[in-house]
C-alpha cells in the first residue's frame, strides 16, 4: 500500500559546501540519499514529494561539519499481508515464479498457482501453461500477498494467485 509519510533524514555537510548553492546541494543530496531505499519500518521510499524543513544546520564542534536534520514528505510503499498487487514475472522455475512488484520481490509457489497451470521445462524460456494461459517472463500477474518478511533494509513477500480474480492480467 502507498502512503505519504513525513520522514526525517540527517545530512552531514562538509564546510566546503557552505555557500550560496548550499540549499540546492542539500536538496539533491536528500533525493539521492533516500529515494529508492527501503526501511523495514516504513517500506520502500518511492519519491520525495516535498521538503517541509531543510533543517537549521548545526555546526558540530570538533570537525566543522554542519548537521541538517531534514524533514520531508515522501511516498512510501509498504506491502501488507492480504494486499492485492500487480507485478511482472521475471523468473520462472519448477518451484514457482518470481514477480517484481515495483521494488518488491515476490515469490508465488507452484502450489499456489492454479492447478491447471503446469510447468513446462522444455519451453524456452521456461513457463507455466494451461489451456488458455501462459505465464512466462514479463507476464503481468495480479498477486495476493500472503506473507511478508521484513528485514531492516529489505522486504520480501510470498504471494498467491490461486484465488478468484488473481493471475494473468491483460
Amino acid at each position: 500500500m502507498f502512503f505519504i509519510k513525513e520522514l526525517t533524514h540527517t545530512i552531514m555537510l562538509h564546510p566546503s559546501y557552505f555557500g550560496p548553492r548550499m540549499q540546492q546541494y542539500l536538496e539533491s543530496k536528500l533525493y539521492s540519499d533516500v529515494e529508492g531505499t527501503c526501511s523495514g519500518q516504513f517500506g520502500f521510499i518511492i519519491a520525495v514529494v516535498s521538503i517541509s524543513d531543510i533543517g537549521k544546520g548545526m555546526v558540530l564542534s570538533g570537525n566543522g561539519q554542519a548537521e541538517f536534520v531534514t524533514r520531508y514528505r515522501a511516498i512510501v510503499f509498504k506491502p501488507f499481508k492480504g494486499e492485492v498487487v500487480d507485478g511482472v514475472v521475471h523468473n520462472v522455475t519448477r518451484m514457482g515464479i518470481f514477480a517484481e512488484v515495483g521494488p518488491l520481490n515476490c515469490f508465488v509457489s507452484q502450489q499456489l498457482l492454479h492447478p491447471d497451470l503446469k510447468f513446462d521445462p522444455s519451453s524456452n524460456p521456461p513457463s507455466y501453461t494451461s489451456q488458455d494461459q501462459v505465464i512466462e517472463n514479463n507476464t503481468k500477474i495480479r498477486i495476493k500477498i500472503i506473507g511478508t518478511r521484513v528485514d531492516a533494509t529489505e522486504i520480501f513477500a510470498i504471494g498467491t494467485i490461486k484465488e478468484d480474480h488473481l493471475g494473468v492480467i491483460e
Binding site: 518451484m95 515469490f107 509457489s109 499456489l112 500477498i145 506473507g147 518478511r149 520480501f156
Partner: peptide, 14 residues
C-alpha cells in the same frame, strides 16, 4: 513444505 527466505511459501507464516 516450501520455504523461501524464512517464510513459508504456502501460508506466508514466518
Amino acid at each position: 513444505g516450501v520455504q523461501m527466505g524464512g517464510l513459508c511459501a504456502l501460508c506466508g507464516k514466518d
